[in-house]
Structure formats: C-alpha cells, structure tokens
Amino acid sequence: MLRILGKASSINVRKVLWACAEIEIPFEREDWGAGFKSTRTPKFISLNPNATVPVILDDDFVLWESNSIIRYLASRYNGGHFYPVQPRARARVDQWIDWQASDLNRSWTYAFMSLVRHSPDHQDSRALAAACSLWSRHMEILNRQLESTGAYISEDGFSLADIPIGLSVNRWFETPLDHPDFPAVSAYYERLSRRPGYLLHGRNGTP
C-alpha cells in the first residue's frame, strides 16, 4: 500500500491526500514534521535530503516534492481523466502547477509568515503591505484565468492543476488580510467545495 510521510496540516501533504481522494488511491499516512516525528533524522534524510514533507513510498519507489508526487500518482494510478496524456493538454496543466509553485507560492510567503505564523522576523509593516499587494496581483491573474475558462484552471475541466491552486485559494481566504473582490476566484472556491476531497484536505479551516 502507498505510504505517505507527512503531517496532515501541511499544505504540501494535503496536495497528495487530495490527489489520492480524487483518484481513489488507498494509502497509509504517518505523521512526520514539526510537532511529530523529526524529519532531521538520518532515517528520514535517507529518503529526502531536504528533510521536508511529503515523501511517498510506493513499494520500493521513493519520491519527494509534492507536485512531482501528484503528477506521478495521476500517471501511475489511472488519473488520466484529470491529467491528460496528450502533450499540449498536459503542458497547459503543467504550466499552472509550475506557476503555483514558483510565482504564486513566493508571493504569499511574507504575508503568511506574518499574519498566520506570527513570525517575529516578518513584522515589518511596509514589507507586509508590499507582500499583500504582490499576493493580490497574483490572485488577479488567477481571477482572469478563471473568467476565461468559466470554471476551472484548464478550459477542459477539473485537472491536476486545480489541486495546488485550490489549496492556494484556501490559504488566500483563510489568511486575515483585506481581500480584493475577485468574483471568479470566489465562485471557484465554492465550486471546488462541492468536491469531497477538497472539503477533507482543502477547505477544512487549515490555511
């Protein structure tokens, strides 16, 4: 059985859990990370040299990096209905997964650390204002894409890209800051919330 190493509150672990829910993959999860078993042990570092979660063990195959994991799971476990095989369709999905990991993910770091984690190193008011503005600009990009497709990130319907981006949208709404009015993002949030996997691992009150 697939083993998932990582605490369920981690946004990156929740990507994997939601993907498993969508593809109906049975798994066992073990709590690793802050507050649980340490990822700094030689045992864990032998699996992931970055000492971060999640890590999966699929028989004798070990994989880390959450977006790589969900791509692998969709490819291995018949997830072609939301991770297309056709190269151009897959590339459109991949570009939004990569956008979330690079541009969108970086845009929220300071604001999230300040407003949710209450990090003493992230309490500069000007830096916070700049971070909130940057985060909003990226959410505006997302809003335009959703206006264009009318439903999900891909014009072809729900796809693997909606997992990391859907979790990012949850983080946006759960972080206590002024949220500009992005109607397409709000509608997307409600649309995703009709998916049982999202309610379990996305819109569950955990930013």
Results as ranks from 00 to 15, higher is better:
R40C: 14
P42I: 07
I45P: 01
S46I: 07
S46M: 10
S46P: 04
L47S: 12
L47K: 15
L47W: 13
P49A: 13
P49I: 12
P49E: 05
A51S: 15
V53Y: 01
D58V: 12
D59G: 14
E65N: 11
N67F: 11
R71M: 09
L73N: 08
R76G: 01
R76E: 13
N78Y: 14
N78G: 13
G79D: 08
H81K: 12
F82C: 06
Y83W: 09
P84G: 02
P84Q: 11
V85F: 09
V85A: 14
Q86D: 12
R90K: 12
A91T: 04
V93E: 10
Q95T: 07
W96F: 02
D98A: 10
D98Q: 11
W99Q: 02
A101D: 04
A101M: 10
L104D: 05
R106N: 12
R106A: 14
R106H: 03
F112C: 12
M113W: 04
S114A: 15
L115P: 00
H118Q: 12
P120N: 08
L128W: 07
A129G: 08
C132M: 10
L142D: 03
L142N: 01
R144N: 11
R144K: 15
L146W: 09
E147K: 08
S154E: 13
G157S: 07
F158W: 10
S159E: 10
L160F: 11
